[in-house]
Computed example of a mutant assay.
Amino acid sequence: MLLLGDFSLVLLTLLQLYSISMMDVFLVLFILPFGILLPFPVGINALFSHGPRRSAGLARLYALWNLTSVVNVVVAFLCGYVHYNSSGKKQPSTQPWSIGMDENEWWIFPAGLVLCKLFQSQLINWHVANLEIQDRSLYSNDFELFWQS
């Protein structure tokens, strides 16, 4: 679910930047080439891999791409901030079909993306640690078995 939420926020952020300027989209996509798009397929690959050793390696690769994509999200923040400061105070849209966000709320999608990526990084660390545990007695319901050497 987090992978899909992350990918949805990435697409919404890119769409928002596209409404500002195509140059902003290119900046976000190519500062670290496709760093904002690649965590999703790498995460899906890690999620559906078989075997603890293979899965742990792919999960580490996903964690690396997830961290790399934060740089692209920072670029998205900067592009939104520059556009917001350069646009000045415009009048709100009076069109009845305009359901979009106000220009004051440009930061919502990138902020949600950062929070999602931080949460994913903590979960992936726990996931890799669980995959690397060799003592399966940790998963036992018998507490005495856990404390025996």
Rank of each mutant, 00 (worst) to 15 (best):
L3G: 05
L3E: 05
L4A: 13
L4H: 15
L4R: 15
G5C: 13
D6N: 14
D6K: 11
L12S: 10
L14A: 07
L15S: 12
L15C: 08
Q16A: 04
Q16R: 12
L17T: 05
S19C: 03
S19M: 03
S19I: 00
M22C: 08
M23G: 06
D24M: 02
V25Y: 14
V25C: 07
V25K: 12
F26I: 13
F26A: 12
V28D: 01
F30L: 15
I31F: 15
P33C: 04
P33F: 03
G35W: 01
G35P: 06
G35F: 01
L37W: 04
F40R: 02
G43R: 04
I44C: 13
I44T: 10
N45M: 07
N45T: 08
L47W: 15
L47S: 09
L47A: 13
L47P: 03
F48A: 03
F48Y: 14
F48V: 07
S49K: 03
H50M: 13
R53F: 07
S55F: 01
S55C: 08
A59S: 14
R60K: 12
L61T: 05
L61K: 06
L61P: 00
A63F: 05
L64Y: 11
L67C: 06
V70H: 02
V70Q: 06
V71T: 13
V71P: 02
N72G: 03
N72T: 06
V74E: 05
V74G: 03
A76K: 03
A76M: 06
L78Y: 09
L78K: 02
C79L: 11
G80K: 04
G80E: 07
H83Y: 15
N85L: 14
N85A: 11
N85T: 15
N85H: 15
S87G: 00
K89F: 03
K90G: 06
Q91M: 11
Q91S: 12
S93M: 03
T94Y: 03
P96H: 10
G100A: 06
M101P: 01
M101L: 14
E103W: 05
N104Y: 13
E105Y: 04
W107M: 07
I108W: 09
F109H: 04
F109V: 07
P110E: 02
A111D: 00
G112D: 02
L113K: 08
L113Y: 09
L113I: 12
L113G: 09
V114T: 12
L115C: 14
C116D: 12
C116A: 15
K117E: 04
L118K: 04
S121G: 08
S121K: 01
Q122Y: 13
Q122D: 05
L123P: 01
L123F: 10
I124H: 05
N125A: 06
N125G: 01
N125P: 00
W126H: 09
H127E: 04
L131G: 00
L131Q: 00
I133A: 02
I133E: 12
D135L: 02
S137H: 13
S137L: 10
S137D: 04
L138D: 00
Y139D: 01
S140P: 04
S140D: 12
S140Q: 05
D142R: 11
D142Q: 09
E144N: 10
F146W: 14
W147L: 02
Q148W: 05
Q148T: 14
S149T: 10
